[in-house]
Write a protein that binds this DNA or RNA. Structure first.
Lengths: 207, 207
DNA sequence: TTCATTATGGAGCGGTCGTTCTAGAAATGA
DNA sequence: TCATTTCTAGAACGACCGCTCCATAATGAA
């Protein structure tokens, strides 16, 4: 019933999340969003309510197409070692190959959200718990398999890997250096008896 | 020559940095800065040039009174163990006792700065290198002393501690949980043969 | 005293912000 | 066909943005 929408929601959210990701919520104007999505203000407000609504939808879209997707793909791998190595390899390559040094939209949002936006803060916190839970599952599996030593508490290790990931995302905004990242991941992996194969800066595709 | 200033620069920068720290650069209006500092716009612009100038001065003030000060105090301690333990104890207590969960102004700024502000990005990067250098000095001293084992590369350890600190600062905005922080610091300290005394949430003074 | 210089208070500048409004277009159901 | 509903284009709203201007006040130098 009624006139159908002319835009592709996925493409719109893709464009919107790119802008929010690069500039943050506050520094992104609704005009910039209009231009990026090729949507008029009326269409945006009709479809998403307001700027915050579009941001939340764009954030969901971002999480699904990056972090959640990455977790699902690597958790499906046969070994815990491969899952962990693959996850960090991909994370590091992405961080180093982004010419805009946008880091991670989740981390960017974490530092832009304040206790005055408790729902947003809780949303970010919950997503970080999901990442931590992924690490916990992988580590427990690896310990059960015999891939990883069993003397270390998996909860501690999961928290460590989460923080390593968060710290890397901060550093990738200001110091996207392969050498730095290698010296972070190598000792963390060594705890689990894993050898981290040093990686070098990856040139981004020109699109 | 000319009329003297009526305000105390230190108090003004203290007030300004509080507002920037809590809300970020973009979300802080010059009106809010006027109110917080009790200065008219004319006085602010006369003294600091523009909003960015005030921000940079406030940032310097913040760094001097927090991170740089903390580094200097702990590096003066007789043992490397005490320096490292004291530094992280204070960092963790500060993070957990802040009712506004402002995290670290340096980290907040790191994620708000873009490659379009290369000077700001470089400023943040340089400050982070200073923190890393502090860790490196302490670790090298500890290894020379015999306080820390010598089999681990001090450069790797310094990078690790920097990332741990950055990651903690991200998490402190959204998940300021003492238990989480203890499980992060404990294993990192264990590498150096240090025992981390678990800490609990510290209630902030009511001022 | 006078003058040059700098600081302050407060009004207000042009511009941009997030958002809404109105007119009309494109679909469905009767 | 026509009423109803939803979506789109583009102008425009009031609010707020960063910042400047102007008159006046407070200092040191001559």
């Amino acid at each position: 019933m009624g006139r159908p929408r002319e835009f592709d929601q996925d493409k719109v959210l893709d464009a919107a999340s790119r802008v929010f990701w690069a500039n943050g919520y506050e520094a992104t104007s609704t005009r910039a969003l209009s231009e990026a999505t090729s949507l008029t203000p009326a269409s945006i407000y009709n479809a998403f309510g307001d700027k915050r609504g579009l941001f939340l939808s764009a954030m969901e879209h971002y999480l699904n197409s990056t972090i959640r997707n990455r977790i699902a793909r690597h958790e499906a791998l046969p070994s815990a070692s491969a899952a962990l190595t693959g996850f960090f390899t991909e994370s590091m390559d992405r961080a180093l190959s982004d010419p805009d040094q946008r880091g991670c939209m989740l981390v960017n949002t974490a530092l832009e959200s304040t206790p005055r936006n408790p729902e947003l803060t809780e949303f970010v916190a919950a997503e970080m718990r999901q990442i931590e839970a992924f690490f916990l599952r992988v580590i427990k599996t690896g310990q059960k398999n015999g891939e990883f030593p069993k003397d270390l508490k998996p909860e501690d290790l999961a928290a460590q890997f989460l923080t390593l990931l968060m710290g890397m995302r901060v550093l990738s905004r200001v110091r996207p250096e392969a050498k730095l990242f290698n010296s972070l991941i190598r000792p963390a992996f060594a705890q689990l008896g894993l050898v981290w194969p040093n990686r070098t800066r990856k040139i981004s595709p020109t699109l």
